[in-house]
Amino acid sequence: MDALQFDLKSKQLSLIQLPVPSKLAENDVLIKVAYAGICGTDLHIAEGAFPCGEKVVLGHEFSGVVEAVGSKVNHVKPGDKVSVDPNSGCGTCNYCTDSNYHYCEVGGLNNTIGIYRNGGWANYCVVPNNQVFKLPEKISLEQAALTEPLSCISHGWDKIQPIPIGKDILIMGAGIIGNLWACVLHLQGHRKVIVSEPQEARRKLVANLNTGYEIMKPTDLQARKAANPKWGVDLIIDCSGFGPAIEQALDLLNPGGQLCIFGVASPETKISVSPYLLFKKELTINAINVNPFSFNKSLGFIDAMGDRYLAYEKLGIKVFGLNQYEAALAALKTGTIAKAIFKID
Rank of each mutant, 00 (worst) to 15 (best):
F320I: 02
N123A: 05
L24V: 01
I169P: 10
Q248E: 14
F293T: 14
S154L: 04
A68P: 02
S14H: 03
P198H: 12
K343F: 03
Q324Y: 04
S10P: 08
E148N: 07
C183S: 15
V184P: 10
K55Y: 02
L187D: 06
V69E: 08
K343R: 15
I163G: 10
V193C: 03
M1G: 07
L252E: 14
N254L: 14
A226Y: 10
C52F: 00
N118K: 00
K32W: 00
L299S: 07
S266D: 12
N27L: 11
S294A: 14
L170V: 04
Y325R: 06
V273S: 05
N123C: 05
V290Q: 12
I344R: 13
G257H: 10
P19E: 14
L185T: 04
A223M: 11
W157K: 12
K281S: 10
H190R: 02
N129K: 11
I341V: 15
V20H: 07
G108P: 08
W181A: 02
F262N: 07
L310M: 07
N254H: 13
Y103E: 08
P128E: 06
N123P: 04
A36P: 02
K343V: 05
V69T: 14
E268F: 06
V195W: 03
Y116I: 01
S266N: 09
Y309I: 12
D80E: 05
L235E: 07
L253Q: 13
Q188R: 14
A3N: 10
I317R: 02
N74E: 09
V33Q: 05
F6E: 00
I236V: 15
V69R: 00
N286R: 15
N228A: 11
G173F: 06
Q248P: 04
V127R: 09
G108Y: 05
E247N: 11
L209R: 02
K23M: 09
L4I: 01
D7H: 13
L4C: 06
G321Y: 03
D7A: 08
T211F: 05
G37I: 00
A245R: 07
L135C: 12
Q131G: 13
V76P: 01
S10I: 05
V57W: 00
F342E: 05
Y213G: 04
T336V: 15
C125K: 11
Y276Q: 12
L150D: 12
A144C: 04
L253R: 12
G79K: 00
M216H: 03
G166M: 04
K270L: 07
R202Y: 05
S99K: 13
C183E: 10
K167H: 12
W121I: 02
S140T: 15
V82P: 08
N94Y: 04
I246L: 11
N179E: 02
R202M: 04
A265K: 13
L221V: 13
G316D: 01
S10K: 14
F262M: 06
G79V: 00
I171N: 05
L310G: 09
G335S: 13
P51Y: 08
Y309E: 12
F62P: 01
T334H: 03
I236D: 12
G70E: 03
